[in-house]
Design a protein around this nucleic acid. Structure first.
Length: 256
DNA sequence: AACGGTGGCAACCGCCCCTGG
DNA sequence: CCCAGGGGCGGTTGCCACCGT
């Protein structure tokens, strides 16, 4: 069996946070700083799981968070970074000051995924979709049916990965120690990457004067598709150091 | 006006990695 | 080296507002 849940669910609040809970959390972190999430709820007088507190703080309460109004520049950058990094929302978020991985993930799922499909681009591979494929994926990518929900046909937690595999296409890769076939029934987290390319660690995004969009300029030193070139960077399984991508973005003064 | 479908997003779940003992 | 716990992460779900019929 897996590890026990991070906290006993008995007596703990779930669901939306109340202003009072927010205030307690903010006050506690202002006084004591971040960290010790597991013990924080108890010390702060919150009937919440530590993870829930962390999530609330990271995604909503942190003072440096920008909310909403994702600019076209940010949107373009998200698309470019997703093309490079795949669904590594936290890495993408690091390149967008004030944005959280959750916000970017949501924005991708609700806006950009659809937008790319409408442009005939496969949001997973960032390549042109064939017309047939596009129609098929659009149909399959529809928001889950409420009817299905009412019929209690929600996918079980344990079976989710199989369906995800079906949706995500060919660029699903296994994490580190995985060497079995796609569709692991354990529900292991899967990461889909763009077609493997060898690039230099330094990437710059230059802006088109005409439309303000960005173009990723990375020094590709080898042909694409060399999927055998396993990661030089075990941490990310990427052919470059995703943590240290340098971006030439005029409207972002700091890169971290 | 009522109802069902869809969109958007906050929050949860479960797995994995890292680190300290 | 091994193990357990904390924290981080990505995928998924639930709720609510909005929209079209």
């Amino acid at each position: 069996m897996g590890r026990a849940p991070c906290c006993s669910k008995v007596g703990l609040h779930k669901g939306p946070w109340t202003p009072k809970e927010d205030a307690l959390l903010i006050k506690y972190i202002q006084d004591h700083g971040e960290g010790q999430w597991r013990s924080l709820p108890k010390n702060a007088g919150l009937l919440r799981c530590g993870k829930s507190c962390r999530l609330r703080w990271m995604n909503y309460l942190r003072p440096d968070i920008k909310r909403g109004n994702i600019t076209p520049e940010e949107e373009d950058l998200i698309i470019k970074l997703h093309g490079l990094l795949g669904n590594r929302w936290s890495l993408i978020a690091k390149r967008l000051p004030g944005r959280t991985d959750n916000e970017i993930k949501n924005y991708w799922n609700t806006h950009l995924d659809k937008k790319l499909r409408n442009q005939g681009i496969d949001p997973n591979t960032h390549k042109q979709l064939s017309r047939v494929l596009d129609v098929e994926k659009t149909a399959r990518g529809k928001k889950r049916s409420r009817i299905a929900m009412n019929n209690h046909t929600k996918r079980s937690k344990t079976s989710k990965s199989n369906e995800v595999d079906d949706k995500k296409g060919d660029f699903m890769v296994k994490t580190k120690d995985e060497n079995t076939s796609v569709g692991d029934e354990r529900g292991r987290t899967k990461i889909h990457l763009p077609k493997p390319i060898r690039v230099s660690p330094i990437i710059s995004l230059t802006r088109h004067n005409s439309n303000g969009s960005f173009e990723a300029n990375y020094m590709s030193t080898a042909s694409s598709g060399s999927s055998n070139s396993q990661s030089q960077n075990p941490k990310d399984e990427l052919p470059f150091d995703a943590e240290n991508i340098m971006l030439d973005i005029p409207w972002i003064s700091s890169t971290t």
